[in-house]
């Protein structure tokens, strides 16, 4: 890489994201208490030795709910980022390299998705088939792919007229090889950085859905849902809503910063 120094900010961001990944994977094992167990004898308790972040209105342990809630926050966003990365890159390369009617059709889709407000579509969708997590994730993938597609197509268009691509064409290298092995490594910097931005966005949107009651089913430990459940207690028991809210913001911001940083690092690869 260009320089060995990563800076304390990026190190902190990486730590946050790694932490969330660990929680998302091992959450149920790490939680000190069962996140679902209600204890009506101690509701809305302030932080204490037994409940580090206190309890919510049903007496459930907030810390445990946050730890276990990392999974729904992370997994959906990850699936969205990864799937739309895959399709966005493949279709973006195709549109940029082949052009013609393939490009025209794909760009029509991009323009359409671009002009529709994401949250509105999801709300309408939830209104039709009911509030469900995975169908919402699927809809979000369809809405996000154009985002990746556009970035990759633009970067591809820049590479196509370069002599190295034309040299491969005149050599008779098959189109798929030119796209995947020649062009992609040269556009991957923006594509990878973009995946991180997509992740951050998806995390916020999914949490927003849960917040609106359109995401995970009621009762599930989930950051967005916890935020919604505990907002009425904001002045009585601030930690209950602030902690999940802060985690959403922190994770999204970290992903954004890591994306920017990666792009810088990756962009200078070919110069050495």
């Amino acid at each position: 890489m260009h320089s060995g120094r990563t800076g304390p900010v990026i190190a902190a961001c990486l730590a946050v994201v790694l932490g969330v990944i660990v929680l998302a994977t091992f959450g149920p094992l790490l939680a000190p208490l069962d996140p679902a167990v209600q204890n009506l004898a101690s509701v809305n308790a302030p932080p204490s030795g037994a409940h580090w972040l206190g309890t919510d209105a049903l007496g459930r342990d907030i810390l445990s709910r946050i730890i276990v809630g990392a999974r729904t926050a992370f997994v959906g966003a990850f699936v969205i980022a990864a799937t739309s990365f895959l399709f966005g890159n493949l279709l973006g390369l195709l549109a940029g390299y082949r052009g013609g009617w393939i490009d025209a059709i794909l760009m029509r889709w991009v323009d359409m998705m671009w002009s529709i407000p994401t949250l509105l579509v999801l709300i309408v969708f939830a209104g039709i088939i009911g509030a469900q997590y995975w169908p919402s994730v699927a809809v979000l993938v369809v809405l996000t792919v154009p985002f990746d597609l556009r970035v990759v197509r633009g970067a591809t268009l820049e590479q196509v007229p370069r002599p190295y691509v034309e040299a491969a064409k005149t050599l008779g290298v098959p189109g798929w090889r030119i796209m995947l092995l020649h062009i992609w490594p040269n556009v991957s910097a923006s594509a990878i950085a973009n995946a991180f931005l997509v992740f951050a966005d998806a995390l916020v949107v999914l949490s927003g859905l849960s917040f609106l009651g359109l995401g995970v089913p009621p009762g599930t430990p989930d950051w967005g849902l916890m935020l919604a459940e505990n907002v009425p207690l904001l002045f009585v028991h601030p930690v209950a809503s602030l902690a999940p809210g802060a985690l959403i913001v922190l994770t999204a911001t970290s992903m954004n910063l890591i994306g920017d940083w990666l792009q810088e690092q990756l962009a200078t690869r070919g110069e050495r």
Binding site: P163, Y164, A167, L181, P185, N186, E271
Partner: peptide, 8 residues
């Protein structure tokens, strides 16, 4: 300068 793929 651009006839070769910079990543390869």
């Amino acid at each position: 300068y651009s006839t070769l793929n910079p990543m390869r």
